[in-house]
Design a protein around this nucleic acid. Structure first.
Length: 283
DNA sequence: CACCATGTTCCTTG
DNA sequence: CCAAGGAACATGGT
């Protein structure tokens, strides 16, 4: 459940549920997701600690915790990778197949499961410190974006995935933002004109904001029921027929007509990732 | 069997 | 030192 909007919606969902809850037990099923933190280190730090809050930075979740003893506040850093999920479920309920870390909070468990184990739940904060500006914060300006783009000759689509450029844009919303801005994904970053950079800046914010809005209308109570959850950027899905509508204009729409000009959407591979675009609307 | 998948990091090459 | 490219990570769906 990966890009910024999905993480934002998850954070809003979990924050009130975790507030003031105390961690009674720590169970690490996949030590790999803690690295470089060790299972013992995590256990010692988290046992008896209480959740003070939960925020987001880029695609990362930041859990604020207060450990036992005085002056013992610290952060726990989460990242969902490609397939990570985090949710609460009754402690008596059986654990999912790919449970990576389980925190017992009284009668409920906080579950971090991850089918591919690309995500993280760690005490190491370095990766967060290296992130670029938050897309909705004031530091993210067209000028700052233009300067960052000017230093690279890589295709602008590839550059948008660089979390130092702007934090939180992933493969799906990079394609969507470029479509909205009318810029070809192949364009070398330093050749994007200033007026286009301005359009791109607006497009990034618009695409993310709309996705958050759409995602906020979808229930995230997946701890209690079946397998699937709200990959809410996909249109019709997951047994909820007309609740979801089509939300993406180019991503995963190979061959479908562009809804602006009717030209079939194309796919290309850049830096080993799929890019979708309209060859007529994006130059 | 082949190819695809929402992400990040590490290694190599130029 | 830097930018760019590609593989690796691990599992499952089609």
């Amino acid at each position: 459940m990966p890009e910024l909007p999905e993480v934002e919606v998850l954070v809003r969902h979990l924050a009130p549920l975790l507030q003031n809850r105390t961690i009674r037990e720590v169970h690490v099923h996949r030590p790999k997701v803690l690295l470089p933190t060790s299972p013992r280190e995590l256990q010692e730090r988290l046992s008896g600690a209480r959740f003070l809050g939960l925020t987001r930075r880029g695609k990362y979740l930041l859990f604020a915790l207060r450990g036992k003893g005085r002056n013992n506040d610290f952060s726990l850093v989460g990242h969902l990778g490609m397939t990570g999920r985090m949710y609460l479920q009754p402690a008596k309920q059986s654990l999912p197949k790919h449970a990576a870390v389980v925190l017992r909070l009284g009668r409920e468990n906080f579950i971090y499961e991850d089918q591919r184990y690309f995500g993280r739940l760690t005490l190491a904060v370095e990766a967060v410190a290296a992130l670029g500006p938050e897309p909705f914060e004031a530091e993210f300006t067209p000028t700052a974006l233009a300067q960052a783009l000017q230093r690279s000759t890589r295709p602008v689509k590839v550059k948008l995935l660089d979390q130092e450029l702007v934090a939180g844009v992933g493969n799906i919303y990079a394609s969507e933002a470029l479509f909205r801005a009318g810029i070809s994904p192949r364009r070398p970053a330093h050749r994007v004109k200033l007026h286009e950079v301005k359009a791109l800046h607006r497009a990034i914010r618009a695409v993310l904001r709309e996705a958050i809005r759409n995602g906020s209308t979808i229930p995230l109570n997946f701890g209690t029921e079946g397998k699937r959850d709200g990959l809410f950027y996909y249109g019709q899905a997951l047994g909820m027929p007309d609740f979801y509508e089509e939300r993406l204009r180019v991503y995963d729409r190979l061959g479908q007509p562009c809804d602006r000009c009717g030209t079939p959407i194309r796919r290309l591979v850049q830096a080993a990732r799929s890019t979708f675009y309209c060859p007529d609307c994006q130059r």
